[in-house]
Design a binder for these strands. Structure first.
Length: 571
RNA sequence: GCGCCCUUAGCUCAGUGGAUAGAGCGUCCGGCUACGAACCGGGAGGUCGCAGGUUCGAAUCCUGCAGGGCGCACCA
């Protein structure tokens, strides 16, 4: 709950009860009292629909109820006006003093402005990207990387203790195929006759890895048994790809606290103790959700709304991928004790949502897993669709994209759309480092402010304005002289920030932040056009407006920081 | 056939119960002898896919239909 919203709701509720107590209003039922922000600013800063909600219970038209309630909403210093409008809305306009106070608060809190404690220190894990370590990442991975990292920053800002994790699928047939593919290329390079595996990975990167092994170790591996060669190459190539993944991700500023290996779930514990998968399975047996059928071991996921039951242990004795996933989430929630676990999955995995939620519920942690399903990325270039395929070797990879458009534009573009919307990413457009690109619009506002501050300080070459703003602008600058429309509009936008942060965090929706950043930048640019900041003839006005632009600077830096985008002081 | 996501201005998209549905781009008109014009102001542009329902009120919730995307393994 935000201070101002709370204040308004209290004001309305008090007026309502006072009217009832005095007998002016008779209610068969007390309506819920809520305050909301009208979409249209001409309707005021806050509005309540309580008169419409109470209309039936009061047995009179909404506007009449509104008359009675609003008459009792006396002059609080933060409230400038109360009006009745439309079908019975009560519109409340904040006083200039209340709006000016937001600037003071933003300056006082600095980069902590907009922080909240709704997370209450609870431990949350965000697992994302988790690309298979057998090849380069596609652009969809880039989207999950930007999304997961920004979500982690956002959750941290609202009081959660956050860990970022990458799940590495380093066990299974894909790893075998991967090893066979590298081995086949190695043999080719060594001049041996070889039939490339039917289902092998044909990307050029496989040959690159083989070439590197050949350069390092010579041709000696061509003459050892295939199993020995492939087993060695598997580890060698796996390590290389993993390093590559880390390298590309760090190129966009994304790092992980934990790289979790799937192998550890299959591995027996010390002294032959059961593996994590076996322990999780035993837990499900104990809870009564397991049965045997046609030689396989099944999980009764239909008890939790899944379409059909799922196999955990196949008839041949091996475990399914899903079994490892159940064990993995048991490890997260039970052994590591996270209060909340967020997995970001591509839309191509949405068919697994129900069974995963069923697994978590059966393990005794219902509701602690939140799956974010992100729609896929369609890559365009000059209006042409670019197909992505791990097999053709012709795909544009995440790395390629990052090299072309840079980390700031890539992140911003990835985050600008809601996650359940497919993303059309036009490389050619994103490459244009022009005003078409909204990230530059926002960054420009920040750089422009820094330029003003440098000018005001008489230090055009200063590297970092943060080092001198405190000395330049007193904390108790008198802001009451700031009453221009453009100024008040800017203060209103500033006041929305805490609200936007909480909404974005609660909805796992960083795209709300990109929108806000653009709106705040627009409000600033409008203010800048109308209001001269540095004016030697008006020292008090100059100080007050410097306080404003400095507050905006900090909030722009904060919101860009939550997106993982840089806030340059010059461009 | 079943499930999930999507359908809003010419284009790309915001908007999950409120008032005259918004933004960017594009288009047309206008604004620098003020601190960064990478900026700002204004105009034109809409059957919120279609049809019912719920209620004081629906782009938003429910049902059905149409169109597009993605999935429906003892694969990973």
């Amino acid at each position: 709950m935000f201070a101002v919203q709370h204040l308004i709701e209290t004001l309305v509720r008090d007026a309502l009860t006072a009217a009832v107590d005095s007998g002016e209003l008779t209610l068969s039922e007390m309506p819920e009292v809520t305050a909301e922000r009208p979409r249209d600013v001409s309707h005021g800063d806050w509005a309540t629909n309580v008169a419409m909600r109470a209309s039936k219970a009061a047995g009179m038209p909404p506007r009449q109820v509104a008359e009675i309630v609003s008459a009792r909403m006396s002059g609080h210093p933060d409230v400038a006006a109360v009006e009745i409008a439309g079908p019975g809305f009560i519109n409340i306009r904040l006083s200039n003093a209340a709006l000016q106070r937001v600037v003071v608060e933003a300056r006082a809190k600095g980069l902590d402005f907009g922080r909240s404690e709704i997370g209450a220190g609870r431990r949350v894990q965000v697992e994302f990207v988790s690309a298979n370590p057998v090849g380069p990442m596609h652009v969809g991975h880039g989207r999950w990387a930007a999304l997961g990292d920004s979500l982690a920053r956002l959750l941290g800002h609202v009081g959660y203790s956050v860990e970022r994790e990458f799940y590495v699928n380093d066990q299974g047939v894909q790893m075998d195929v991967f090893a066979e593919s590298v081995a086949a290329r190695y043999l080719e390079l060594a001049g041996r006759e070889v039939v490339f595996p039917e289902e092998g990975y044909r990307g050029a990167y496989i040959t690159d890895i083989a070439r590197e092994i050949l350069a390092e170790e010579g041709e000696s591996w061509a003459d050892v048994p295939a199993a020995e060669r492939e087993s060695y190459f598997k580890e060698k190539a796996y390590a290389q790809v993993l390093e590559h993944l880390k390298h590309v991700l760090s190129g966009m500023g994304v790092t992980f606290d934990v790289w979790f290996s799937e192998r550890t779930l299959h591995a027996p514990g010390p002294d032959g103790a059961p593996s994590a998968i076996e322990r999780a399975l035993a837990r499900l047996v104990e809870a009564g959700y397991i049965y045997e059928h046609e030689g396989a071991t099944w999980f009764r996921s239909t008890d939790f709304g899944d379409d059909k039951d799922r196999v955990l242990k196949k008839a041949d004795g091996s475990y399914t991928y899903f079994a490892a996933d159940v064990a993995y989430h048991w490890n997260k929630l039970d052994e590591r004790g996270f209060d909340l676990v967020i997995d970001i999955w591509g839309a191509d995995h949405h068919g697994y949502v129900k069974r995963m939620e069923a697994g978590v519920a059966a393990l005794g942690h219902p509701g602690k897993l939140h799956l974010v399903i992100g729609q896929l990325v369609n890559l365009f270039s000059n209006g042409e669709v670019v197909r992505m395929s791990k097999r053709t070797g012709e795909m544009v990879t995440f790395e390629d994209l990052l090299d072309e458009v840079g980390p700031d534009a890539a992140r911003y573009f990835f985050l600008r759309r809601s996650t359940d919307q497919a993303l059309d990413f036009d490389i050619a457009l994103a490459k244009e480092q022009s005003s078409d690109n909204p990230v530059f619009y926002v960054q420009y506002a920040h750089a422009r402010i820094c330029s003003i501050l440098r000018k005001a300080a008489g230090d055009p070459d200063a590297d970092d304005v943060a080092t001198f703003v405190a000395g330049l602008i007193p904390a108790d600058a008198d802001l009451s002289i700031l009453t221009a429309e453009a100024e008040l509009a800017l203060f209103r936008k500033l006041a929305e920030f805490s609200e936007i942060v909480e909404l974005a965090a609660a909805g796992y929706a960083p795209n709300k932040l990109t929108r806000y950043a653009e709106e705040l930048a627009a409000s600033f640019h409008q203010f800048y056009t109308v209001c001269k900041v540095v004016d030697p003839d008006a020292p008090e006005l100059t100080v007050a407006r410097l306080a404003v632009v400095d507050a905006i600077r900090t909030v722009l830096e904060t919101v860009l920081g939550l997106l993982g985008v840089s806030a340059p002081q010059r461009m």
